[in-house]
Design a protein around this nucleic acid. Sequence first.
DNA 1: AGACTAACTTAGTACAATTGCA
DNA 2: TGCAATTGTACTAAGTTAGTCT
Length: 707
Amino acid sequence: MSGDHGRGDSQVNSGSKGSDTHKHKDKHKDKEHRHKDHKKDKEREKFKHSNSEHKEHSEKKHRDKDKERLKHSDSSSDKHRQKHKDRDKDKRREEKIQSSHLEKPKREKENGYVRDRSPAGIKSEPEEDNGFYPSPQHNKSSRQEYDDEEYEYKPKKVKLEHDKKAKKRKHEYDEDEEDEGIKHKKKIKDKKGTDGKKVKKEEEEKWKWWEEERYTDGSKWRFLEHKGPVFAPPYEPLPGKVKFYYGGKPMKLSAPAEEVATFFAKMLDHEYTTKDIFRKNFFKDWRKEMTSEEKSVITDLNKCDFSEMSEYFKAQSEARKQMSKEEKQKIKEENERLLQEYGFCIMDNHKERIGNFRIEPPGLFRGRGDHPKMGMLKRRIRPEDIIINCSKDSKHPKPPPGTKWKEVRHDNKVTWLASWTENIQGSIKYIMLNPSSRIKGEKDWQKYETARRLKKCVDRIRAQYREDWKSKEMRIRQRAVALYFIDKLALRAGNEKEEGETADTVGCCSLRVEHIKLYPKLDDQEYVVEFDFLGKDSIRYYNKIPVEKRVFKNLQLFLENKQPEDDLFDRLNTSILNKHLQELMDGLTAKVFRTYNASITLQQQLKELTCCNFKPVLLSCIPVYLYCTDRCHYTRVCSLNLGEQQRRGKLMTASQQRSYRTTEPTGPWPFFATTRELRPKHLRSPCKIFRTRSMRNKINYQQPGSS
DNA sequence: AGACTAACTTAGTACAATTGCA
DNA sequence: TGCAATTGTACTAAGTTAGTCT
């Protein structure tokens, strides 16, 4: 059964152009009407029966009226559509920014992997808080055997060392630093000197975190020390000769206004700056930075001439390209120095690479698709905005002289090192570790393990949702059809989004009537559903796919008496769906289907397409695409980021190894091959494996069947 | 039950670095 | 060997999920 689930999807990158066709005619007028945040009604009614009461929601009157007419929603349950749109967002954001995060103990859910609960709760007092992982060298015995049937992570033995002195830690840190820092440089040298032995030795020294046990108490670490983030360099005013003109006349701007103007000038060649929303948002925010005189003069963006600024930046970037080798080397060294100083942290007793240790610099917000906030000013983040997370007994990072952190906290239930609240959407941004870190790798591993468990019960789950297509209850039918789409078409869950805050994109649960078309017959196929919507990142999803008759009939039912802007699945949301999935399998959520189906597809395709008896595990950052000639579509099967060192040395980090595990049990460990090793001789003709990004771009623009 | 949102994963884009071809 | 094409990496936007509060 699993075999017949071909992904018939095709993504067509349409950008904002595509989205135009998706706009509702009366989008603004009717904002209220089709706001996606309205909550679905309490679901009580039986599909057939309906004597339920009609809840009144005055704001939704029109819509509710329509709903009332729905044959199938007879029972009453009009959607409960509570609006909160009109809330004062700014106020909320303000509050959000001001309110400090509360440290709440959270129950760690391990997706069902770790069932044991270690009694070793973690203590927060420095004297008692110095548990270190047993070092890998001394922990060989804890090596995990891979067993498909009963694979489980074992709980990490939590060794608590009392009173680990800062001195000792410092010592280890230094040692580590020396170790890693020198190692890194050495490695490069060795590479150059083709000294294979040393490299090999270093490979062996790599920390095999996956052979160790994991925390089971929900804590993510015992000890965390880092140097804090690197801030964006301060604004450097333009040289006097570079002028801004307003209405043809040169005008000297105040530094804050000039800085924001340079953000615009730097984007002048970009299509963004021609978009009305972008210009409007930019101008509004820019004016906030102006002095009152500037504000009184500069009233029309069209009269602003940034071209001299723009030319200046172009010249600068040109000059950068033309720099001498020495100069370039100097910059490289400086970057390396910053990386060495701020790019690593000590988590438990290992030095780990930080993913993004630089704070996002100020600039203009570039949303994707038709984002209502594009062009808004992303403000400069100051130390006062930053919450630092580290262990109490670590050497806390120092804020830049004369500044303070917003807060220093010690929450080992989370993985981030620093966070701040961003001003565009009011969301929180984090500084976290690199994918090669233990903490990311474990999570990744766990993800694939969950997918592997799904493999064991996917037949049951599919049988179940097929059965549910016949349910008496509308909500169950909707749930079952949605799940079928998620499984068959690899659609995303599709959360509801707050209108006006983001681009109008949807996923499965948030599909609207206008996003599908039903064709009882199309060409020589029956029961064809045509999907046309903007998904994540406003990438257009366009697909025509034949579905089973029952699904088709259900869809017809769901569409009855609905307006184009109404929800297709009006009795469903991601929360309902995921709760259901959780009951079907521990740890199962909608996204697991994507992981599972991508993995199984990769595996099947490799099996089908390769003729050597080996399991290639793709080892480079090159995205690999498999072309399924029978279905006329391409599937992106994988890509990953491999660090420079690994790439050069052809080493694979643990997390990368995990990333490439597919749902099939791999035995002790698969034979690894890189994409480069996946040569034509390994392939069955006439299959095609594409590995280039340029190919991906071609693929993305390709309509299904048009190849 | 729904609103809110913290925390984390996924994924596109820009540009730097590297490769490969004439 | 020089330049165009391709690939790698950093950055950060846009998702998902689950916990908590009302």
